[in-house]
């Protein structure tokens, strides 16, 4: 039986030598968690199923630094590695895969140039093309009002989801569910789905968002944003139907190490790799 995946995420600031892993709450109150290579190795030893590195500066200049980080990490880390931030053309995918990564995640670049998904998936394969979607709820009064958006019922009211780009700094008005379906059509292999409303809050994942995406798509969904404890992770993997759960700070500051989360899930009857 396919196991649900637990994925620590490293938000990397690459403006210092070797980089550093940071975590902020809604981009404020930045804390430093350690060096990327060091943390990735620790999570690997803890039993992480996959590790995501995000270059939060998403800069052209730092992509080489990111490649160095991946190079060093994969000497001793033998689980899949996904890299995001600053991936803009098929050659960027190729370079990251050469450095030892297995997948690349794109958000802003894919929204600006959706053909990138078709091109990249032809060159490196769909399995390496992850699309990051940062989705923000837009509440509406009357669900019948809109035919351009996919309306979802949440405990807080009816809403649609707006795609954000540039790390949450800009909104596009693009419907996140429709965009995810287009990405799948174009050759994306997986969706890394972050709830902007929950990110950094530890209030739990956005369950209706994950449920809807998982039902509408044939490709796997990685739930992200809001995971504050093992119960939240359990909820999104079962009720939310996500294939994998991504979290950052609960792992970084040893609140709930990976083995603790997995033991909890196993006791609840979720298939996990222990």
């Amino acid at each position: 039986m396919l196991a649900k995946r637990i994925i620590p995420c490293l938000d990397c600031d690459l403006n210092v030598p070797h980089g550093r892993v940071v975590k902020g709450v809604e981009f404020k109150q930045i804390r430093y968690a350690g060096e990327p290579v060091e943390l990735a190795t620790k999570y690997y030893q803890d039993g992480a199923d996959e590790i995501v590195f995000l270059d939060i500066t998403a800069s052209h200049e730092r992509r080489e630094t990111m490649a160095d980080v991946i190079n060093a990490t994969t000497e001793n880390v033998f689980v899949p590695i996904c890299v995001g931030g600053g991936i803009r053309k098929p050659q960027d995918y190729v370079n990251m895969l050469k450095a030892g990564a297995d997948k690349c995640s794109t958000n802003t670049a894919a929204i600006h140039n959706p053909d990138l998904i078709n091109e990249a998936s032809k060159v490196v394969g769909s399995q390496a093309c992850v699309i990051g979607i940062d989705a923000k709820r837009r509440y509406i009064e009357d669900p019948k009002e809109s035919d351009e958006h996919i309306i979802i019922e949440t405990p807080q009211g009816y809403c649609w989801y707006d795609c954000s780009i540039y790390g949450g700094r800009e909104f596009t008005g693009i419907d996140a569910v429709k965009w995810a379906m287009e990405c799948q059509e174009r050759g994306a292999g997986e969706i890394l789905l972050t709830s902007m409303d929950r990110d950094g809050t530890k209030d739990g994942y956005d369950i209706p968002l994950n449920q809807t995406m998982s039902q509408m798509l044939d490709i796997p969904i990685i739930a992200s944003g809001g995971g504050g404890n093992p119960e939240d992770i359990y909820e999104v993997l079962t009720l939310g139907k996500a294939d994998a759960a991504l979290a950052a700070s609960i792992f970084h500051f040893d609140e709930y190490p990976v083995p603790v989360v997995k033991e909890f899930l196993k006791e609840k009857g979720v298939a996990v790799r222990l």
Binding site: L2, A3, R5, S126, G189, D218, I219, P220, A244
Partner: peptide, 11 residues
């Protein structure tokens, strides 16, 4: 409810 590709850890 299975996805394609078969992606992840299986026993």
């Amino acid at each position: 409810g299975l996805k394609i590709p078969h992606m992840g850890w299986n026993n």
